[in-house]
Each structure stands twice: as C-alpha cells, then as structure tokens.
Amino acid sequence: MDIHSIKVACSSCNLRELCMPVGLNPDEMSRLDSVISTRKRVKRGAALFNHGDRFSSLYAVRSGFFKTRVTSADGRDQVTGFQMTGEILGMDGIVNDYHSCDAVALEDAEVCVMPFDRIESLSREFSALQHHVHKIMSREIVRDHGVMLLLGSMRAEERLAAFLLNLVQRLHSRGFSQSELVLRMTREEIGSYLGMKLETVSRTFSKFVEEGIIEVKQRYVQIKDTEALRRLVNPPSSD
C-alpha cells in the first residue's frame, strides 16, 4: 500500500466543519492539531485497514471515496457502506479493539489519522469534542438503522431511489451539485450494499432512465426528477 505521512493542521483545513466540532477556542484547536498530525494516502483498490487489524485510530476522509465490506462465512463479500470526504472511518474497531471490516479506497484517497486514545483523552477535557464524538457514533447507528429499513421493507426501485437521494444529499452538504453525481462504486458494489442482484440494479437504472427520472452516461448520473425519487421512497398518502 502506497501510504505517506504528511503534517497537517485541522485549524487550517477547509473541511474542519464537516469532521471536527465547531466552537473550540484557539488553545483547544492547537492541542487538537498536535493530536491529528498526520495524513495517509491510500491508492485506489488498497485497504486503509482490514478485518482483524488492531484498532488504534479513527480516520477522517480528506479526499476520495471508500467502501467498507465484510466477508461472510462462505467467502462472499458484503458491502456495508460508502464513505466520502468529511466522514469518519474506523468506528467498527472501538468495541473490541480490532477492526470488524475492511475499508477499501474506491479511488486515490487521503485520510487524516486520529489516534483514538488521544482523542478520547482530549474529549474528556473539551466537552465540545466529546459531544462531537458521540454525535458521530450516533449518526453511524442511525445510518445502520436506515440501511436495515431499506433492506427489510423496500422494493428494488425504492432501494435504488433512497440510495441515490442519500448520496446526492451527502454530496450537496459538501458543496457539490444537488442533481449531478459521479458514482465511485460499481453497480455490483451498489447491489451488494442494497441486497440486490447486479441484473436488478442495471434493470432498475434503465427503468429510471426510461421514465425520465435520471440520465446516465457510464458512471455520471444526472437526476432529472428528484420529486419522482422522493415519491418512490415516501409514497403520497392515499387518504
């Protein structure tokens, strides 16, 4: 894995609001800078960490895109999530001190390394940091519940519509378009995440194109009718 360490300062990072708490005073920010002092570059297709690796750090995605996956007893890979700029990787390792999944870069990426013992120690001193760490953990739990709901009760069209809406909303909060996105993952990976066969994913994309809901050029997707996607996920009440 081609990984380089680079000195970095959170105080001068334009992604600070996405992955770090607001409201820290200059002294607190300086102490946080001393903790989060390195970045790692991860090449496309390489793992940031693997299942069974010892847990020591959380990682804030500075650039690029990742997938997390677990391998079932019969050797099949199951994608459990996609993480983008400003999101945190590595929470899975907190409970048992080792990672329970693989985190693989879907494109050349860079992460900020956040040594967990030092973050934990600082968070006991700064209530804003402690609150932020709890908020991130809570967000992961809520996201897991959302995926369970998606897989448990939705048809193929609803699953893909919810996935596209979630992805574009997360990208929009990072300053990207509300209606255009480039899929960093393959359709097979989308299918693994949504519990759908590859053919079903392709057929559903084609159906959305035929209905004028989206336009697709290879991995580029333009959402032409956001409301149609929303209606699929939350059908209007019949009363």
Rank of each mutant, 00 (worst) to 15 (best):
residue 57 S to K: 05
residue 17 E to R: 11
residue 34 S to M: 08
residue 77 D to K: 12
residue 137 M to I: 15
residue 102 D to I: 07
residue 213 I to C: 01
residue 50 N to Q: 14
residue 45 G to W: 05
residue 134 H to I: 12
residue 142 V to C: 10
residue 104 V to I: 15
residue 102 D to N: 14
residue 59 Y to R: 03
residue 190 I to D: 01
residue 13 C to F: 10
residue 20 M to A: 15
residue 135 K to V: 04
residue 228 A to Y: 05
residue 95 V to P: 05
residue 4 H to E: 14
residue 52 G to R: 08
residue 161 A to D: 01
residue 150 L to V: 00
residue 50 N to H: 12
residue 181 L to F: 04
residue 221 V to S: 00
residue 97 D to Q: 12
residue 201 V to L: 00
residue 194 L to N: 01
residue 217 K to G: 02
residue 58 L to Q: 04
residue 93 G to C: 04
residue 167 L to F: 09
residue 142 V to Q: 10
residue 30 S to T: 13
residue 44 R to A: 13
residue 192 S to F: 02
residue 8 V to I: 15
residue 14 N to E: 14
residue 183 L to Q: 04
residue 62 R to P: 02
residue 34 S to W: 02
residue 204 T to K: 01
residue 87 E to P: 03
residue 200 T to C: 06
residue 89 L to W: 00
residue 191 G to D: 06
residue 113 V to S: 05
residue 79 V to Y: 02
residue 143 R to A: 13
residue 180 E to G: 08
residue 210 E to R: 15
residue 109 A to M: 07
residue 209 V to M: 03
residue 26 P to Q: 06
residue 115 P to Q: 07
residue 73 A to L: 14
residue 183 L to F: 02
residue 49 F to L: 04
residue 155 R to M: 07
residue 145 H to T: 07
residue 93 G to F: 00
residue 178 Q to Y: 08
residue 14 N to T: 13
residue 179 S to L: 09
residue 226 T to M: 11
residue 96 N to C: 11
residue 20 M to W: 10
residue 116 F to S: 03
residue 121 S to T: 10
residue 29 M to Y: 02
residue 151 L to I: 05
residue 130 Q to L: 09
residue 95 V to F: 12
residue 206 S to L: 13
residue 27 D to T: 15
